[in-house]
Amino acid sequence: MPEEKLTFDDALVQLETIVQQLENGNLPLEESMKAFERGVELGKFCNEKLTSAEKKIEMLTRQPDGTANVQEIPFPVDQQ
């Protein structure tokens, strides 16, 4: 699967098409198995794209020598 060239939006649209095809229930078993597998791959791909960033906070500061310094900092206490 040439996933490198696939954009998130394209993958999502493809996934939706597959879902609709499967929901229509007109596909023979073999084809729907293939479609399903493809759908799972696309879903995984999309999910990875959505969650490929880590949930974290980093602090960017400039050091005295002018270089940038990045260090992870804790989340503030959620008061809500």
Binding site: L12, L15, I18, V19, L22, G25, L29, S32, G43, N47
Partner: peptide, 15 residues
């Protein structure tokens, strides 16, 4: 994405 994933599994399970 969540919607499609659910429907994907559901459609396949149904078939």
């Amino acid at each position: 994405l969540q919607n499609f994933s659910q429907r994907l599994t559901r459609a396949m399970t149904w078939q």
